[in-house]
Design a protein around this nucleic acid. Structure first.
Lengths: 211, 211
DNA sequence: TAGTGGTCTAGACCACCGC
DNA sequence: CGGTGGTCTAGACCACTAG
């Protein structure tokens, strides 16, 4: 393979390591590498951006801003966004739709340095990510905590489902390349959304939690 | 770092790459590496084995076998286990408890070559994984599909929750190092279980699905 | 501007699988 | 036993960050 591509073996091995890390191939000593998943995994960008994810699955994304307010950070938000007591967050609540059908409620808290970069108009037009990256920040890492919750009265009204019905929740903390937190979000999906995670014996980034 | 450890730089870089792949550290050109997560991620073994996971979080695991039957594979099972029409699966349903409290219902289908390795006694004693590995199989890869479901009448009875309450479901397909499927499982968690996934811009194995 | 990370080369030796 | 993967070395050059 190395001589076919005209590069050194180390470089080829590095390329295979990238594929293995995202669960696309598996390898074991002696035997040839095996293709595990033909299905493409999503980049961090597609995972974070509802709009580009929607388009990648062939659906038309839209959205509605429910609220857009500066308020005191809760204790939990201060912890996830590395804020001191008394600091504010920008709290944005949006309903996201796929082909006109409510698919997700997104409640995001932005720290002051990030929330200062955009207005409610940016939220209406759906491109908060663009506004944030235009402001000089880069999304580089995210940690998703995935669980199931019963729809609250608010959730039910926004998503058009029954109160108490099962929603898939993904809470996300995104950081820039230095590990500085950029957002803390609570996304609740109605309908048949799911997350897929690949694991190998060598490497995995998935863990199961209680509480 | 390389000279401190007395190894070459390539080796040190490889070690850092492993940490980066599981989301523990982040790096960018020029700047020093940053620690993202102090929390340890779980190995594939801990993810697959309820018992070792339970002990790792300081809880006492136990279990109860609800049913243990050979039956025709459904179309879905044949697809996930690479079985031909007319083949059988071993269907094992177990309730798993943490400190005596029902935490999860596990419904697993094993293909004939794997199901032949153990008896209902192995299932009672909780170590199907051991029996399978003693039979010469190795779990090397897994793909988890995570979503939320409403508790069925059966789920509710087994877990001691209300019918229709929100459960976290993880469907898992495990394979050996060659990609041969070893099990297809539907695990439903009550209470406050969650899954945590790390992502980086460079590499990730997480994808969001619809349907 | 020094130090760090990213990328690549060329070669070595071993372990293991499959024919 | 040939081929493949796993591991490691020693060195090169570039890009970028931080002080």
């Amino acid at each position: 393979m190395a001589e076919r591509a005209g590069v050194s073996r180390g470089t080829v091995r590095h390329a295979y390591a990238l594929l293995a890390a995202e669960g696309a191939i598996a390898s074991r000593q002696g035997a040839r590498r095996v293709v595990l998943a033909t299905q493409r995994t999503q980049s961090l960008f597609e995972l974070r951006s509802f709009s580009s994810w929607a388009r990648s699955i062939g659906a038309e994304p839209s959205g509605r801003v429910i609220s857009f307010d500066w308020r005191d950070a809760t204790e939990e938000e201060r912890r996830h966004l590395d804020l001191a007591a008394g600091e504010f967050v920008l709290d944005v609540v949006r309903v996201r739709l796929l082909d006109g059908v409510p698919a997700m409620v997104e409640r995001t808290a932005y720290p002051p340095r990030v929330g200062a970069l955009f207005t409610v108009d940016d939220a209406e037009s759906g491109s908060l990510t663009e506004a944030i990256e235009a402001g000089g920040f880069t999304f580089a890492n995210a940690e998703h905590t995935i669980d199931a919750v019963a729809a609250s009265v608010d959730d039910a009204a926004l998503l058009g489902v029954d109160v108490g019905s099962a929603l898939l929740r993904a809470r996300r903390r995104s950081t820039d390349p230095s590990g500085v937190p950029l957002e803390w979000s609570d996304d609740r999906y109605a309908g048949d959304a799911s997350f897929v995670v690949h694991n190998t014996a060598a490497i995995d980034g998935l863990s199961r939690m209680r509480a």
